[in-house]
């Protein structure tokens, strides 16, 4: 094949992307676990790990720019490299949301949780499982799988609305709970955003595989009323 070197570079780039994906997936459960167990040590190390994740994202970005500048990729090559670049950015942002969970843990200190966590870990589990599937779709260039993953974002949004309403009833009953309610709401909000970003990853996979740019789950972008 006349473009062996190029193909190897693209494959290596994709491997780095999947490694970044694996690290990012782990941050979701680490962040949630730290929140559940109020583990400030884990929270601190998660915040530190974010530096490494940012570094990986810039490495991928740089390599993608270099490929574009030196190889002038076209058609499916162009779509694949652009998708890798955009997915790396989504992953890095997902890790930022996990980092936000860690920061809530630190901020809350020893203050007791407003209520035992039930739906938040469920949201987190869904996010993790969706991201895992999305990364499989990336690895296999599988647009059908990507579409299936995106459809699951609805569940996350439903859980978020439920958490929102529940926390509001606490605040309405006793306004002194507002700070603790907001901490949990902020945690849920970050997980909800992760779901949206996984959907973005799904859209990139579909574009790379089919050349079609489509926005999925538009109806879910409405605010919670």
């Amino acid at each position: 094949m006349p473009r062996d070197t190029f193909e190897k570079q693209v494959n290596d780039l994709k491997k780095t992307l999947l490694a970044l994906g694996a690290l990012t997936t782990q941050t979701i459960s680490d962040g949630t676990e730290a929140l559940k167990t109020r583990d400030r040590v884990t929270a601190q190390s998660l915040i530190k790990q974010d530096i490494e994740i940012n570094r990986m994202r810039y490495d991928i970005e740089e390599r993608a720019y270099r490929l574009i500048a030196t190889q002038q990729p076209l058609a499916s090559d162009l779509r694949e490299i652009m998708s890798i670049l955009l997915i790396a950015i989504e992953l890095e942002r997902i890790a930022d949301h996990s980092k936000n969970l860690a920061e809530i843990v630190i901020r809350m200190g020893d203050e007791p949780l407003l209520k035992p966590l039930i739906d938040i870990p469920r949201m987190a589990q869904l996010c993790e499982s969706m991201l895992g599937q999305a990364l499989d779709a990336v690895a296999r260039n599988d647009s059908e799988l990507a579409r299936a993953v995106c459809n699951r974002d609805e569940e996350i949004d439903q859980l978020y609305k439920q958490i929102f309403r529940e926390l509001m009833t606490y605040v309405m009953e006793d306004s002194r709970t507002v700070t603790r309610a907001l901490n949990l709401l902020f945690a849920a909000h970050n997980l909800e955003r992760i779901g949206d970003r996984v959907t973005n990853i799904g859209e990139r996979v579909i574009y790379a595989a089919t050349g079609r740019l489509e926005e999925l789950n538009v109806e879910n972008h409405q605010m919670v009323e």
């Binding site: 473009r3 076209l74 058609a75 499916s76 779509r79 089919t210």
Partner: peptide, 13 residues
């Protein structure tokens, strides 16, 4: 960006 024929894709990539 998205040629219809595999032959075209193979050539331009």
């Amino acid at each position: 960006t998205n040629p219809a024929k595999k032959e075209t894709e193979d050539y331009i990539t």
